[in-house]
Design a protein around this nucleic acid. Structure first.
Lengths: 131, 131
DNA sequence: CTTGACCCGATACCCCGGTACCGGGTTGAC
DNA sequence: GTCAACCCGGTACCGGGGTATCGGGTCAAG
Protein backbone atom coordinates (compact mmCIF):
# COMPACT_ATOMS: atom_id res chain seq x y z
CA UNK A 1 0.00 0.00 0.00
CA UNK A 2 1.40 3.42 -0.90
CA UNK A 3 1.26 6.46 1.31
CA UNK A 4 -1.68 8.15 -0.43
CA UNK A 5 -3.80 5.06 -0.08
CA UNK A 6 -2.94 4.59 3.57
CA UNK A 7 -3.55 8.24 4.26
CA UNK A 8 -6.96 8.25 2.70
CA UNK A 9 -8.10 5.01 4.23
CA UNK A 10 -6.95 6.00 7.67
CA UNK A 11 -8.33 9.50 7.30
CA UNK A 12 -5.13 11.48 7.71
CA UNK A 13 -2.98 13.32 5.27
CA UNK A 14 0.25 12.11 3.77
CA UNK A 15 2.40 14.62 5.63
CA UNK A 16 0.96 13.33 8.86
CA UNK A 17 2.13 9.80 8.08
CA UNK A 18 5.61 11.07 7.51
CA UNK A 19 5.39 13.02 10.71
CA UNK A 20 4.37 9.89 12.64
CA UNK A 21 7.22 8.03 11.07
CA UNK A 22 9.68 10.72 12.15
CA UNK A 23 8.26 10.57 15.68
CA UNK A 24 8.72 6.82 15.71
CA UNK A 25 5.02 6.02 16.01
CA UNK A 26 4.86 4.31 12.68
CA UNK A 27 7.60 1.86 11.74
CA UNK A 28 9.54 2.74 8.63
CA UNK A 29 7.89 0.77 5.86
CA UNK A 30 9.65 -1.14 3.11
CA UNK A 31 10.44 0.81 -0.03
CA UNK A 32 9.76 0.09 -3.65
CA UNK A 33 12.63 0.18 -6.11
CA UNK A 34 12.01 3.85 -6.76
CA UNK A 35 11.89 4.74 -3.10
CA UNK A 36 8.11 4.81 -2.59
CA UNK A 37 6.92 3.68 0.83
CA UNK A 38 5.13 0.32 0.78
CA UNK A 39 2.98 -0.06 3.89
CA UNK A 40 1.62 -3.37 5.16
CA UNK A 41 -2.16 -3.61 5.46
CA UNK A 42 -2.07 -3.41 9.26
CA UNK A 43 -0.76 0.12 9.05
CA UNK A 44 -4.34 1.27 8.64
CA UNK A 45 -5.27 -0.10 12.03
CA UNK A 46 -2.26 1.41 13.66
CA UNK A 47 -2.97 4.84 12.30
CA UNK A 48 -6.62 4.59 13.28
CA UNK A 49 -5.58 3.53 16.74
CA UNK A 50 -3.37 6.58 17.02
CA UNK A 51 -6.22 8.87 16.07
CA UNK A 52 -8.59 7.25 18.47
CA UNK A 53 -6.19 7.49 21.36
CA UNK A 54 -5.59 11.11 20.52
CA UNK A 55 -9.26 11.91 20.53
CA UNK A 56 -9.32 10.49 24.02
CA UNK A 57 -6.74 12.97 25.11
CA UNK A 58 -3.55 10.91 24.96
CA UNK A 59 -0.53 12.75 23.68
CA UNK A 60 1.54 11.24 20.89
CA UNK A 61 4.22 10.40 23.45
CA UNK A 62 1.65 8.43 25.43
CA UNK A 63 0.40 6.75 22.31
CA UNK A 64 3.92 5.58 21.71
CA UNK A 65 3.87 3.99 25.14
CA UNK A 66 0.51 2.44 24.48
CA UNK A 67 1.77 0.93 21.26
CA UNK A 68 4.75 -0.42 23.15
CA UNK A 69 2.43 -2.19 25.59
CA UNK A 70 0.93 -4.24 22.84
CA UNK A 71 4.20 -5.72 21.75
CA UNK A 72 5.77 -6.60 25.08
CA UNK A 73 5.98 -10.31 25.87
CA UNK A 74 5.44 -11.89 29.32
CA UNK A 75 9.11 -11.24 29.98
CA UNK A 76 8.45 -7.51 29.98
CA UNK A 77 5.21 -8.00 31.77
CA UNK A 78 6.06 -6.21 35.01
CA UNK A 79 6.95 -3.02 33.20
CA UNK A 80 3.99 -3.35 30.90
CA UNK A 81 1.64 -3.91 33.77
CA UNK A 82 2.98 -0.91 35.63
CA UNK A 83 2.47 1.35 32.65
CA UNK A 84 -0.97 0.01 31.94
CA UNK A 85 -1.97 0.38 35.56
CA UNK A 86 -0.83 3.95 35.66
CA UNK A 87 -2.71 4.84 32.49
CA UNK A 88 -5.67 3.06 33.93
CA UNK A 89 -5.93 5.17 37.05
CA UNK A 90 -5.38 8.25 34.98
CA UNK A 91 -8.25 7.18 32.79
CA UNK A 92 -10.45 6.53 35.78
CA UNK A 93 -9.87 9.97 37.16
CA UNK A 94 -10.67 11.56 33.87
CA UNK A 95 -13.81 9.53 33.50
CA UNK A 96 -14.97 10.57 36.95
CA UNK A 97 -14.34 14.23 36.23
CA UNK A 98 -16.10 14.02 32.90
CA UNK A 99 -19.08 12.34 34.55
CA UNK A 100 -19.26 15.10 37.08
CA UNK A 101 -19.18 17.62 34.30
CA UNK A 102 -21.83 15.72 32.37
CA UNK A 103 -24.20 15.52 35.33
CA UNK A 104 -23.67 19.11 35.98
CA UNK A 105 -24.51 20.09 32.42
CA UNK A 106 -27.57 17.87 32.52
CA UNK A 107 -28.84 19.74 35.50
CA UNK A 108 -28.20 23.00 33.80
CA UNK A 109 -30.15 21.94 30.72
CA UNK A 110 -32.98 20.78 32.94
CA UNK A 111 -33.19 23.93 34.99
CA UNK A 112 -31.88 26.70 32.84
CA UNK A 113 -35.32 28.08 32.07
CA UNK A 114 -35.59 29.26 35.62
CA UNK A 115 -34.18 32.44 37.07
CA UNK A 116 -30.50 32.13 37.91
CA UNK A 117 -31.09 31.65 41.61
CA UNK A 118 -33.20 28.57 40.99
CA UNK A 119 -30.90 26.91 38.53
CA UNK A 120 -28.97 23.89 39.49
CA UNK A 121 -25.53 23.40 38.08
CA UNK A 122 -22.82 22.58 40.56
CA UNK A 123 -20.16 23.08 37.96
CA UNK A 124 -21.17 26.42 36.60
CA UNK A 125 -23.20 27.47 39.59
CA UNK A 126 -20.18 28.37 41.55
CA UNK A 127 -19.47 31.08 39.05
CA UNK A 128 -22.90 32.61 39.07
CA UNK A 129 -22.09 35.52 41.27
CA UNK A 130 -19.28 37.00 39.30
CA UNK A 131 -18.97 38.86 36.02
CA UNK B 1 -5.68 40.00 45.75
CA UNK B 2 -2.67 40.72 43.59
CA UNK B 3 -1.60 38.67 40.63
CA UNK B 4 1.16 36.73 42.35
CA UNK B 5 -1.18 35.62 45.07
CA UNK B 6 -3.90 34.57 42.65
CA UNK B 7 -1.37 32.76 40.52
CA UNK B 8 0.04 30.75 43.36
CA UNK B 9 -3.28 29.91 44.92
CA UNK B 10 -4.76 28.81 41.62
CA UNK B 11 -1.61 26.97 40.62
CA UNK B 12 -0.75 28.86 37.45
CA UNK B 13 1.88 31.38 36.69
CA UNK B 14 1.43 35.12 36.47
CA UNK B 15 1.97 35.26 32.73
CA UNK B 16 -0.81 32.76 32.31
CA UNK B 17 -3.24 35.03 34.12
CA UNK B 18 -2.37 37.84 31.80
CA UNK B 19 -2.76 35.50 28.88
CA UNK B 20 -6.24 34.50 30.05
CA UNK B 21 -7.10 38.13 30.48
CA UNK B 22 -6.01 38.88 26.90
CA UNK B 23 -8.07 35.95 25.68
CA UNK B 24 -11.10 37.29 27.50
CA UNK B 25 -11.43 34.34 29.85
CA UNK B 26 -10.71 36.34 32.91
CA UNK B 27 -12.41 39.71 33.34
CA UNK B 28 -10.09 42.66 33.64
CA UNK B 29 -9.72 43.25 37.36
CA UNK B 30 -9.77 46.59 39.12
CA UNK B 31 -6.45 48.32 39.48
CA UNK B 32 -4.74 49.82 42.47
CA UNK B 33 -3.56 53.41 42.30
CA UNK B 34 -0.22 52.30 40.98
CA UNK B 35 -1.70 50.07 38.32
CA UNK B 36 -1.46 46.73 40.07
CA UNK B 37 -4.25 44.27 39.32
CA UNK B 38 -6.60 43.71 42.24
CA UNK B 39 -8.52 40.48 41.77
CA UNK B 40 -11.69 39.57 43.63
CA UNK B 41 -11.56 36.40 45.72
CA UNK B 42 -13.75 34.48 43.26
CA UNK B 43 -11.03 34.72 40.64
CA UNK B 44 -9.40 31.70 42.24
CA UNK B 45 -12.44 29.56 41.50
CA UNK B 46 -12.64 30.80 37.96
CA UNK B 47 -9.03 30.00 37.24
CA UNK B 48 -9.35 26.59 38.84
CA UNK B 49 -12.43 25.95 36.77
CA UNK B 50 -10.51 26.81 33.63
CA UNK B 51 -7.76 24.36 34.51
CA UNK B 52 -10.18 21.62 35.32
CA UNK B 53 -12.08 22.03 32.09
CA UNK B 54 -8.82 21.99 30.20
CA UNK B 55 -7.70 18.78 31.81
CA UNK B 56 -10.95 17.31 30.56
CA UNK B 57 -10.04 18.21 27.04
CA UNK B 58 -11.96 21.43 26.52
CA UNK B 59 -10.12 24.08 24.57
CA UNK B 60 -9.88 27.59 25.94
CA UNK B 61 -12.42 28.68 23.35
CA UNK B 62 -14.84 26.10 24.70
CA UNK B 63 -14.12 27.14 28.24
CA UNK B 64 -15.10 30.63 27.26
CA UNK B 65 -18.41 29.27 26.06
CA UNK B 66 -18.83 27.27 29.23
CA UNK B 67 -18.22 30.36 31.32
CA UNK B 68 -20.76 32.18 29.22
CA UNK B 69 -23.37 29.54 30.01
CA UNK B 70 -23.16 30.31 33.70
CA UNK B 71 -24.06 33.93 33.24
CA UNK B 72 -26.91 33.69 30.73
CA UNK B 73 -30.36 34.59 32.04
CA UNK B 74 -33.60 32.78 31.10
CA UNK B 75 -33.91 35.18 28.19
CA UNK B 76 -30.87 33.60 26.58
CA UNK B 77 -32.01 30.21 27.66
CA UNK B 78 -32.59 28.66 24.26
CA UNK B 79 -29.09 29.41 23.10
CA UNK B 80 -27.64 28.35 26.38
CA UNK B 81 -29.54 25.12 26.33
CA UNK B 82 -28.43 24.34 22.81
CA UNK B 83 -24.80 24.83 23.66
CA UNK B 84 -25.03 22.84 26.84
CA UNK B 85 -26.80 20.03 25.04
CA UNK B 86 -24.19 19.87 22.38
CA UNK B 87 -21.35 19.76 24.89
CA UNK B 88 -23.28 17.13 26.73
CA UNK B 89 -23.45 14.67 23.89
CA UNK B 90 -19.85 15.35 23.10
CA UNK B 91 -19.04 14.53 26.69
CA UNK B 92 -21.08 11.36 26.57
CA UNK B 93 -19.22 10.10 23.54
CA UNK B 94 -15.90 10.79 25.11
CA UNK B 95 -16.92 9.05 28.29
CA UNK B 96 -17.98 5.98 26.36
CA UNK B 97 -14.73 5.83 24.43
CA UNK B 98 -12.69 6.28 27.58
CA UNK B 99 -14.65 3.51 29.28
CA UNK B 100 -13.89 1.21 26.41
CA UNK B 101 -10.25 2.07 26.69
CA UNK B 102 -10.34 1.56 30.44
CA UNK B 103 -11.95 -1.87 30.19
CA UNK B 104 -9.49 -2.79 27.58
CA UNK B 105 -6.54 -1.80 29.72
CA UNK B 106 -8.01 -3.64 32.69
CA UNK B 107 -8.11 -6.82 30.68
CA UNK B 108 -4.58 -6.28 29.58
CA UNK B 109 -3.38 -5.87 33.15
CA UNK B 110 -5.27 -8.99 34.15
CA UNK B 111 -3.94 -11.16 31.36
CA UNK B 112 -0.60 -9.73 30.39
CA UNK B 113 1.33 -12.47 32.18
CA UNK B 114 0.19 -14.93 29.58
CA UNK B 115 1.70 -15.50 26.17
CA UNK B 116 0.54 -12.95 23.64
CA UNK B 117 -1.99 -15.27 22.05
CA UNK B 118 -3.81 -15.73 25.33
CA UNK B 119 -3.95 -12.08 26.31
CA UNK B 120 -7.15 -10.24 26.18
CA UNK B 121 -7.12 -6.64 25.21
CA UNK B 122 -9.46 -5.65 22.43
CA UNK B 123 -7.85 -2.27 22.17
CA UNK B 124 -4.24 -3.24 21.94
CA UNK B 125 -4.76 -6.79 20.87
CA UNK B 126 -5.47 -5.83 17.35
CA UNK B 127 -1.91 -4.62 17.10
CA UNK B 128 -0.32 -7.73 18.45
CA UNK B 129 0.79 -9.18 15.17
CA UNK B 130 2.84 -6.31 13.93
CA UNK B 131 6.21 -4.82 14.80
C1' DC C 1 16.70 55.39 52.17
C1' DT C 2 18.11 51.16 50.52
C1' DT C 3 17.27 46.52 49.18
C1' DG C 4 14.62 42.64 47.71
C1' DA C 5 10.33 41.01 46.37
C1' DC C 6 6.78 42.18 43.72
C1' DC C 7 4.29 44.30 39.66
C1' DC C 8 3.76 46.55 34.87
C1' DG C 9 3.46 46.22 29.46
C1' DA C 10 5.71 44.59 25.47
C1' DT C 11 7.90 41.39 22.96
C1' DA C 12 10.03 37.14 21.93
C1' DC C 13 10.29 32.56 22.34
C1' DC C 14 8.88 27.44 23.23
C1' DC C 15 6.63 22.85 22.42
C1' DC C 16 2.99 20.23 20.23
C1' DG C 17 0.76 18.42 16.39
C1' DG C 18 0.44 18.96 12.36
C1' DT C 19 0.12 21.29 7.25
C1' DA C 20 1.97 23.57 3.08
C1' DC C 21 5.15 24.27 -0.37
C1' DC C 22 9.21 23.33 -3.19
C1' DG C 23 11.80 21.23 -6.93
C1' DG C 24 12.15 17.12 -8.73
C1' DG C 25 11.46 11.88 -9.83
C1' DT C 26 7.84 7.89 -11.05
C1' DT C 27 3.78 5.69 -12.82
C1' DG C 28 0.39 4.47 -15.77
C1' DA C 29 -3.54 5.41 -18.78
C1' DC C 30 -4.35 7.25 -23.13
C1' DG D 1 5.58 9.71 -25.53
C1' DT D 2 2.97 12.83 -22.95
C1' DC D 3 0.36 14.27 -19.12
C1' DA D 4 -2.01 13.96 -14.82
C1' DA D 5 -1.63 11.97 -10.58
C1' DC D 6 1.26 10.35 -7.48
C1' DC D 7 5.59 10.17 -4.54
C1' DC D 8 10.20 11.88 -2.58
C1' DG D 9 13.04 14.74 1.04
C1' DG D 10 13.57 19.17 2.90
C1' DT D 11 12.13 23.15 4.88
C1' DA D 12 8.97 26.55 6.37
C1' DC D 13 4.95 27.73 8.36
C1' DC D 14 0.52 27.57 11.37
C1' DG D 15 -2.61 27.71 15.70
C1' DG D 16 -2.96 26.48 20.46
C1' DG D 17 -1.42 27.30 24.96
C1' DG D 18 1.54 29.03 27.31
C1' DT D 19 6.58 30.77 29.32
C1' DA D 20 10.63 33.87 29.49
C1' DT D 21 12.82 38.13 29.32
C1' DC D 22 13.41 43.06 29.37
C1' DG D 23 13.44 47.67 31.26
C1' DG D 24 11.37 49.91 34.45
C1' DG D 25 8.01 51.28 38.45
C1' DT D 26 6.26 50.08 43.54
C1' DC D 27 6.14 48.53 48.25
C1' DA D 28 7.61 47.48 52.77
C1' DA D 29 10.89 45.78 56.22
C1' DG D 30 14.98 47.10 58.33
Amino acid sequence: MRSGELASSAGVNVQTLRYYERRGLLAEPARSGSGYRAYPGEAVRIVRFIRRAQRLGFTLAEVETLLGLAGGGPDRCAATRALATEKLSDLENRIAELCFMRDSLRNLVRTCGRPAAQRDCPLLGELEEER
